[in-house]
Amino acid sequence: MFRTALKILKVSPQDDKETIHSAYTRLVRRFPPEQFPAQFKKVQNAYHELTLSDQILSKLLKEFKDCNNKFQLTAFFCSDHLDLTSTDPKLEKINNLLYQNQASNKVKQILENIDLSAVEYRKVKK
């Protein structure tokens, strides 16, 4: 998903937020929501994927801390914001926190998947 997003916006993982945003702007000007809804949605999803804001991350962290059982954790992981492929240094913090938590097998499995994508991302970046 992360790679598809990079491809859609034609940016590289090294690019900063401003560059990603101007790539997004260029594509939205080309595919305005009014006339090109389907293409707009793709551009929008890709942009969303590549820019996870500090605010969303901190909100996620709080939500995660509030999870007390398997159901809540699962709901948490299904939430739309959770594509942890951001350049944000807070990612590391969140990952650590997730591991400290005593989670069920299911959650552990999801955690590993998330970590994999993060690891993969870091590789791409290097």
Binding site: M1, T4, A5, K7, I8, F36, P37, A38, Q39, K42, N45, A46
Partner: peptide
């Protein structure tokens, strides 16, 4: 969720 994004920029159907 990933499925939607595979076809990168297909023209509007």
């Amino acid at each position: 969720q990933a499925e939607d994004l595979i076809d990168v920029m297909e023209p509007e159907p």
